[in-house]
Design a protein around this nucleic acid. Structure first.
Lengths: 193, 193, 193, 193
DNA sequence: TATGAATGAGAATTCATTCAT
DNA sequence: GATGAATGAATTCTCATTCAT
């Protein structure tokens, strides 16, 4: 296949991704029809089915893509800082994620209700950076006697807590604004590790 | 209005609640149509609209009802035990909730992603028991200098953490089974308070 | 039946008339449901069927009532002026009707599309005043040799023309405003008689 | 787009027009459902919404189409006769319309109460023939000092009168049959011009 | 590959009418 | 007479999916 054709295909697929993401975040998943997506993407209706099975197929892929993006960016940024203390490193990582969500509330809204940390772990085949989160965390626990599985569980627990608190305080403003929750959350994480 | 008519109305409304709950938990929300609900409830289609605005109206009310039920039962049971230590009391309360969810996974699946602790707080007007959760928690912190708001935030955080971990480990088995997560979760809560 | 009960019945019927008239003129006939009418009238749904067969039954009666009212008022007012010339008398009568419609556009909109002069004639059993329109017109033609039927046809024609022009110029502003159409219309009527 | 597809589209649209027209005239507008239309047209239900917004959209377009057809035919026929006198020409034109309505009462019934001369004028962009009615009329008034607007108003008035009388005498037989009304109507028009 | 016209199953919603109280 | 809860047929409208071009 000529690379021109290949490029054109990639282009169509991407415009479908973009259109779907925009519609899912602004109108909601239920209120977005495939005909909306193809209209916004500027492609024919049949074309959608060449790339995706249905609405939930493209949704799943978008969620994976977007949440990986956040995590990759967060881990890359954290690693570049060369923290001495593990606690500082972890909190910087968590804070980066929260600040990201604060700037892109629509994305948080879309991915939170549809993402589980477990799904991401499966995706870690494709994203080396996600494995690095584990590495960072395990290194932080290097001189403890905790079994590796327990360390992973603690990481899992912290990630779930972060996601949960981010969602409720950023999206629902419950029980209060994220900036007021952060000290409590960070303090809690410090106690946990 | 005669009490016979009144009783009949209550009956219809309840059979709609029950039918909707069963369908939502077994078939899922998206795959449940109003016509399914009325068919299962044994009432006419128009009757649905006499009591509810649409599918999401009945869903919201079910979620509120069911989640209040869990919490009310949990707090009642906890109070009846007359714990001496606050830590024991809180962990018993949390454990009760988790065990409830273990027995009724479908309910957990339905309510978790659609419920926020904030919504419940608003409902606490109608449910005295929910206010008692706060009372219990505040009593536990009685001899600290923490401001009342911070105590509430910590409670909120623990509730979100519990819900989040319950959902992922009971429903998704991620990162592992709930029984393996419990020690870590309880240990974490102990550290937090 | 005691007159108190009788009065109460009349009251309910009247509030149904009023409610229906208000809804028909503001929301339109198609968009007015019987449940709207009874709600606005403050009576039970079953009550409607004690007085009217269906929506079109009450509509027909309202149209007859309202259009008779206009005509009765117009003829009474005209007679009270004691015109010498028939032309002046007829034009005053027509003008009175037009001015009435100008002040109550909603009513014109409701009755025009649903009323025919013929329907009114049938109603003239109940409304002596409507017969007087004929009398006035025939008197005006007293010293001509025209057969009575032709005189009636001319009156009919003038009434249809008036209604038609009122509707288009007052409601649709077509071809122009009623005040600009009046001179042409009056001039035309003068030529006709 | 291939002309085959284009032709097929036109065909579907036309069968919808035809089916809707037949149902509107025979069953009435209120008693015609979209599902009746598509069934009679032999197309899928969704196809209707590909071409029309709703029942009133197709109705409006039908009315415009049909009323333009009558007028176009009437003016074409009139022009072909090469009348010397304007009065003869106008009356022939009016008579043609009336005879048309006599033969197609259902059409008259459908379009009259839903059509205004004003709507037609707007459509005259698409129908050159409608503009020719104005031309004919203005030519007839060529050697008078009447302003152009007044001439148009008189034409409007004559058209409204014709429509109104046609409707009541052909459809309602009020006050009498159209053939008995014609002499009076023609006489009146003669007086008006 | 890409298209978009066509489909029809199925979802939500309305509403006239009945009838037990 | 008066009520209003209950009904379910009827209607509108949507939308995922197909397939001929």
């Amino acid at each position: 296949m000529s690379s021109k054709v290949e490029k054109n295909k990639r282009q169509k697929e991407n415009s479908l991704y973009d259109a779907a993401y925009n519609l899912f975040t602004t109108k909601g998943i239920n209120d977005t029809a495939i005909s909306d997506i193809v209209k916004n993407a500027g492609v024919g209706k049949g074309t959608f089915y060449l790339y995706f099975k249905d609405k939930y197929d493209i949704l799943d892929r978008i969620i994976l893509k977007k949440s990986s993006e956040v995590l990759c960016q967060a881990i890359a940024e954290t690693k570049s800082k060369d923290f001495k203390a593990f606690e500082d490193e972890l909190l910087y990582f968590i804070d980066y994620i929260i600040e990201y969500f604060k700037k892109d509330r629509l994305m948080l809204k879309l991915i939170y209700k549809n993402l589980s940390w477990g799904v991401l772990k499966k995706a870690s085949k494709d994203y080396e950076e996600i494995r690095e989160i584990y590495t960072m965390f395990e290194k932080g626990y290097a001189n403890t006697s905790l079994p590796k599985e327990d360390i992973e569980k603690i990481l899992f627990l912290i990630m779930e807590l972060t996601g949960s608190i981010s969602y409720s305080s950023i999206i629902l403003k419950e029980p209060t604004d994220i900036d007021e929750m952060k000290p409590i959350l960070f303090n809690t994480i410090r106690k946990i590790i």
